[in-house]
Each structure stands twice: as C-alpha cells, then as structure tokens.
C-alpha cells in the first residue's frame, strides 16, 4: 500500500510538473503582457521597471528556474492585471467551477444509469433505439451552441430560468445541462454496453435461478459490476469537463476558473495562467487517485491481490 502511494505521488508530481512547464512555455508564446500595460507618457525606464517586477527582464531559463522555486512554496506571483496573488485568485474561483462540473457530472451519471439500464433491459425496442439516436445527437452537439440555445429558449423565450449569473440553484441548472449533455450521452451508451455484457454473464443466470426480484438483480448483481468499469471513465470525464467549463462559464457569466482563465489569456496574465494550470492539474490528479482508490474498494479481486 505504501509503495502504491509513493508511486502515485511520484507520477502525480511528474504530471503536474509537465503541465506547469507546458503552460509556462505557452504563456511566453502568446505575447508580451507588458505591451498591453504601456500607457501614453511612460518612459523606457518605467517599462523596464514593470518588466523587472515579473522577472521578465531575465533570460527565459532563469525565469523558469525562479518560477519553479517560488511555485514550490505556493507563490505563483502577482496577477499582472489584478495585482493580487495569482494562486489566491484562482483558488477563489475554484469552488464555482467544482460546483458546476460536479453538478453536471453527477446529474449526467444518475440519469445515464437510469437511461442506460432502460435501454439495455429493453434491448432493440423502440425505446432503446430512440435513446441511442438521442445519445448520438447529444455527443455531436457543440457545447457552446447548446448553451446559447438553452439561453434563447428557456430564459429569453419562456423566462423559466435566469440566463446568466451565480448564486442560487436556478442559476446552476442551465450551465449544468449545457456542460452535462455530452457526458450524459456518452455515459448512457457506456452503461448500456456494460449492462448488456453483465446481463449475459453466468452469475446473472444463477441470480435469476434463485427467483429473486428483477430490481434486486439489477441493483445488487449488475450495478456493482458496472461501477467498476465506470469509475475510471468518470474520473477522466471530470478532467475533460473542467476544460469544457471554460466555454460554458463564459457564456453564462459563471464566476469560475474558466472565465478567470479566458480573461487571463486575453490580458496575457501569465501568473494566473500558471497558477490555474497548476490547480487544474492538481484537481485532475487527485480525481484519478480517488478513482483508483474507489476502484480498489468496489472490486474485491484487487483488494486482496
């Protein structure tokens, strides 16, 4: 077990280092942030002084080493645009993003379990075929288009839910749907496929031979086996959703990391970008760690191995 933790920690470290390095390089490629700050009447000396504040006067390798050194102590520097510690700004916007992605994924998962099970149990029926066509649709609709359509129909036309903003449950509904439709479609197909596989296993026949209720067979004998294959997929989806949240948050003015990052990119605010990348990488790594532990807990075959 301790070997497992050590291995996971090491690989997590490598992943986070890699992500942070890539972002460091990319943020230098998108242009000079200071160029956006130049005001009429500034002298060359003023500009050089600004550069020095963010170490931009040093050679790139040196900048990188210094960046790593302070990052290790949790210091990602000051936001160029907002002048506050970058990590603090990122962490402030993290809960909103986590709320949105968790709501989207949880809703998608619960609905996918119901719809996927229905489709598998009523295999090849009208219901199954309709659901499968809908999931194809759901997987091919672009996230931003769906978001705009939801705003247009639900908010602008029928005035059912607020078109944008943050704070109450009703604000969460539309962005969560916009973000959750893709994983819903994907997970529904996955649940259906996994359930069909499990239903054809010998142990389901044994369960049926006992004469126990069909819902008990589904819940006790099938879902647990399906969960084993779902856990890993869900962890990956969670990371993907954090990426997808960028667009959704922008459209719905959701005060999360996605919007913060978009603003940071347009202002070439590299400390925010770097801190953001670090936090996202950390969340993704933690998610996959939690997934591995959950996997070990629900799968008795590896717990004792």
């Amino acid at each position: 077990m301790s070997c497992f933790i050590l291995r996971r920690t090491l690989s997590a470290g490598v992943v986070i280092f890699g992500v942070v390095t890539v972002i460091f390089v990319l943020s230098r490629l998108i242009g000079d942030p200071i160029a956006l700050m130049i005001q009429p009447g500034m002298t060359v000396a003023d500009i050089e002084e600004l550069r020095a504040i963010w170490n931009l006067d040093a050679p790139i390798p040196e900048q990188f080493i210094r960046f790593l050194g302070s990052a290790l102590t949790g210091d990602f520097g000051l936001s160029i645009w907002q002048g506050q510690p970058a990590l603090g700004l990122v962490l402030e916007s993290l809960p909103a993003t986590l709320l949105l992605t968790s709501a989207a994924l949880l809703g998608a998962l619960l609905l996918a379990l119901v719809l996927g099970s229905l489709a598998a149990i009523k295999r090849d029926s009208m219901l199954d075929r309709t659901l499968m066509s809908l999931t194809l649709f759901g997987q091919s609709v672009p996230n931003f288009w769906l978001a705009l359509m939801l705003v247009l129909v639900v908010s602008v036309h029928f005035h059912l839910l607020p078109p944008a903003g943050y704070g109450t449950g009703s604000h969460l509904v539309l962005p969560a749907i916009a973000l959750g439709l893709f994983p819903l479609a994907r997970l529904t197909r996955l649940v259906r496929a996994e359930l069909l596989d499990v239903l054809s296993q010998d142990y389901i026949r044994t369960a049926r031979s006992k004469g126990i209720a069909p819902w008990l067979i589904l819940v006790r004998h099938c879902l647990r086996n399906i969960a084993i294959s779902l856990v890993t997929v869900i962890a990956v989806d969670f990371g993907t959703l954090m990426g997808g949240a960028v667009v959704t948050e922008t459209i719905f003015a959701w005060p999360g990391m996605g919007r913060l990052m978009i603003d940071a990119i347009s202002h070439r605010d590299f400390p925010i970008m770097q801190a953001g990348a670090f936090v996202v990488a950390l969340v993704v790594v933690l998610t996959s760690l939690i997934a591995d532990i959950t996997y070990a807990i629900i799968n008795p075959r590896i717990r004792y191995a």
Binding site: D202, G211, H221, I298
Partner: peptide
C-alpha cells in the same frame, strides 16, 4: 415463473468458476 424458481425448482450450474458473482 420467478416465484417458482429457487423454491420449487432450483439449479446447480455446470460452471462453478463463472456462476458466482465476483463482487458479492
């Protein structure tokens, strides 16, 4: 039929390795 299975008619299956649920 389900009400009869188990109590009126029960089966021992041929494949012991796959006939038990691995996660229960």
């Amino acid at each position: 039929m389900r009400q009869l299975r188990g109590r009126d008619i029960a089966v021992v299956f041929q494949e012991p390795m796959t006939s038990l649920n691995p996660v229960l």
